[in-house]
Design a binder for these strands. Structure first.
Lengths: 215, 215
DNA sequence: TCCATGTCACTGGTTGGACCAGTTGAGACG
DNA sequence: CGTCTCAACTGGTCCAACCAGTGACATGGA
């Protein structure tokens, strides 16, 4: 609410915001509400607050966290940034996902390998698109778990949340879901403890959903 | 403050927290302070708040954002997780950094290519470790910019913040900084628009700082 | 004239109390 | 015994006041 009104419009980096009391009067809200909003902006890395001194806008490109992607996507953003935002999201998904597949091939225990292979087989055997999508999501969830990398898990959480914010349906990753053999090959590479093949297979698979740019 | 007291100890997923009023009395703080803390936890994905209903703990492994890494690292964590946390951080750094180098080789404009090469040369020509570290940081900053991927930029922001939280000094990436020729090779690959070589060079360079595990 | 100093009007930080608005469950009623 | 109502929760919001730092301005002495 306040975030969009503040940053995306005016208020360049290093400018001072109005005081909390001024903002509360200007926005017609109590100082507490303004304060909570400001604290959230601070947590997001958009502003820096210091007692006594004034609250200043930070350069979000340099201090913002990954969660900012959601905020940017939420507020119907700049048209040129819109596609770039999606491309950024899916490029990161491809990069992280491919490395997660590599690590899963290295670190998964026997049970995880078996489950990943079983889910891939179940996916390939199903014709229903919705069912395939559901299995595909769980499959990747298990791969991320098997990779045993907390940063990957958390980053992917943010990325899928971002896909929801951008209101993307299953068709966005349709090119991945329809290709049963490629998914099976990926699962086999992970189950067979072949990190290089797993990485390559995942990379190729995930790359299909990265939007093209006319550069 | 409150985050550590709540999650890391007890309070498993899907359990209900005490009411705001109860917490304020229990912690000796006003309800407003408790409320601000809860809002921050909500933003971090640790809890879900709904008016009328009770505030419940969410499964942070499934709903938390990347910023959670900082929070976990801040509160002297579980010893076994400590090393895993660092490994996760540096693995992600390597994965993102390598792909950023690849994209930079594809997308950088002439000025960026020239600057990246110039900085690499300046780094290789300097003997002082601190100076090399400073140049190295800026060099990667330019690579990320050239990759033109907002998600990478924001994720890296979080990762470097995490390195600060874990109080890691320059020696952590010493194996990268000392190798001038490797850095030069990376810069040349980017400047020469060779994405595959840039990716491989960055990957090899960044992989050196990933802590080993005795698996 | 110039610099050190103290004062004071700001800034954010915190608290208490009150009320509004949903949710939930226990008890009353059919 | 099933259903409905209502009261006691929950979080959401607001007002008013005070504490604690900051910074600039006015004032004094060198």
């Amino acid at each position: 609410m306040l975030r969009g009104a503040i940053l995306d419009g005016s208020y360049g980096p290093d400018t001072a915001l109005p005081s909390e009391r001024a903002l509360s009067e200007e926005l017609g809200a109590s100082r507490h509400a303004v304060r909570e909003a400001l604290k959230r902006l601070q947590q997001a890395g958009l502003i820096s607050i210091s007692q006594g001194g004034s609250t200043r806008v930070r350069d979000w490109r340099r201090h913002g966290g990954l969660d900012l992607m959601l905020a940017l996507g939420a507020e119907g953003e700049l048209p040129p940034e819109g596609l770039g935002l999606m491309r950024s999201l899916f490029e990161m998904r491809a990069s992280i996902g491919a490395d997660a597949a590599r690590l899963a091939a290295l670190r998964a225990d026997a049970a995880a390998r078996a489950e990943i292979e079983a889910r891939a087989a179940a996916l390939a055997a199903t014709g229903d698109l919705a069912a395939r999508t559901a299995i595909y999501d769980v499959l990747w969830d298990r791969v991320i778990d098997a990779a045993d990398n907390l940063a990957y898990r958390l980053a992917l959480n943010t990325l899928v949340a971002g896909q929801h914010v951008l209101s993307l349906d299953a068709s966005t990753v349709g090119a991945e879901i329809v290709d049963g053999p490629a998914i099976l090959a990926l699962a086999h590479a992970i189950a067979g403890a072949d990190p290089d093949r797993a990485h390559a297979a995942a990379r190729e698979l995930l790359q299909r959903s990265v939007p093209e740019t006319t550069s």
